Structures are given as structure tokens and as C-alpha cells.
Amino acid sequence: MAGRYAQLEPLNAEAHAALLFRAFEGQDQLWHYMYDGPFSSSAQFHRWVREVETKDDPLFYAIKNLETGHIEGVASYLRIAPEAGSIEVGSITFGPALQRTRAATDAMYLMMKWAFEAGYRRYEWKCNALNMPSRRAAQRLGFSYEGIFRQAAVVKGRNRDTAWFAAIDAEWPGLREAFEAWLSPANFDAEGKQRERLGDLTSLVRVSSDPLT
């Protein structure tokens, strides 16, 4: 999958593990709400990538920032249920260089675009209810808030209440228009500052909002 600012490549340990470890090195907070990590060494991280690269669910991708030419993040599809027309995006981990960039948004757009164009009816986003940056990101990207599943899991010895968000196929045309308008070069001035905010555009499509964001 390739867009204007980002390219997604099937995760491969030989091609991506060392590059990703450098992108994430010293950023243990990235893994606080994740099921895996943090990783204390490149060898440990390489073993994790080798383990997940063979799986079909979750199905991981490495994210290349086309503006820098570097591999700077990962994301996956998971809970893939073609019979129900449902698929989730998750395990989203952006190194500092990728965070708050056009490439990061483009990567999320490409994954949503593929899901709906592949015929899925429902595209989900779930996160730890304490993870407010993730909840804000879900809203910005056009996912509608669906509630909190209390005591849904135990992760790293801690209770996890899970916040649920989703977009459905009927909303996709409006979300696609919002993403394409935001990603257009015309939406940025000479200094790269956005003219319109993506969250303002997607708010016209979302059917519900997170009360805490």
C-alpha cells in the first residue's frame, strides 16, 4: 500500500527489525499500553518481529515515511472476520519521527481505505480506556465512539477497560473525502502548517463522540 506520504510494507524481520528498533530505541513509553514490549535489546526485538511476521492475524505492516525515506512505525490488522465483514486496526506504534506527521495520517488512511475497498463493513479501533492519546486519535481519524467494555482484559498484570470505536462502510465515502481533503498539498501552507484540521472534517461524518476527548 502506497500513498502520497507513506508506504506500508508487510513486516519482515530481515528488512525491518533493525530499522524499527532504532526508530523506537529509548522510547519505552510507546509500549506502556501494548500487550508486548518494551524490548531491552535489538536481539529481543528481532525475535518478536520474527514471531509476528509469520502470522495472518494479527497481520503486521511496517510504515515507511516517504518524506524521510525511513521505516518509522508499525501497525496491524487483527480480529479479521471476513464472514462478519469486520476487521480491526491495532498495535499502532509510531516512533517519534513519525508522530504528528502527514505520513502517519496517510498510513492510517491507507489501512482504512484497503479495508473498505476489500469489502469489509466494519472497521474497528480499540484501546485501553486510560490511553487518552489513542482515544483522541480515533476521533480525529473518524471512528465513532461506542463505549467502554469494563474489565475486558488483564495486560501486564494491570486491569484494562477497553474503549471501543468503529467506522462502517456507509461512512466511508465521507471519511475518504475528509482524508483526501486533509492530505492534499493545498491543505498546507509554505511552512507545512495545516489549513483545515482533520478532526473538524471527520466530525461531520462521525455519529458519536467520546465524552472525554
Rank of each mutant, 00 (worst) to 15 (best):
E117M: 01
V89C: 08
A81Q: 06
A104R: 06
N128D: 15
A75S: 11
W114K: 14
V74T: 15
Y123N: 07
L110S: 08
A137G: 14
Y145A: 06
R136N: 12
R100S: 15
Y120R: 05
A118Y: 10
G142E: 13
A129F: 10
S76R: 05
A115I: 02
A115L: 05
F143W: 12
R100F: 01
E88A: 12
N128A: 11
S76L: 02
R100T: 03
F94R: 02
R121T: 06
T93Y: 00
A137W: 05
M112E: 15
E72Y: 00
G90K: 00
F143N: 12
A104K: 05
A137L: 15
T105P: 10
R135G: 10
L110R: 10
A118F: 03
A138W: 01
E83M: 05
E117G: 04
S134W: 03
S86D: 09
L98F: 01
Q99T: 15
Q99G: 09
G147T: 03
G147S: 03
E117C: 04
Q139G: 13
R140N: 13
S144A: 14
M132G: 11
A103R: 05
T101N: 08
E146I: 00
Q139N: 10
E124N: 12
P133I: 04
L110A: 07
D106G: 04
P82G: 04
W114N: 13
E124C: 12
Q139V: 15
L98E: 13
F143P: 07
A97G: 07
E146N: 06
K113M: 06
F116Y: 14
Y145H: 05
P82K: 01
Y123H: 11
G85N: 02
G85W: 00
E83Q: 08
F94E: 04
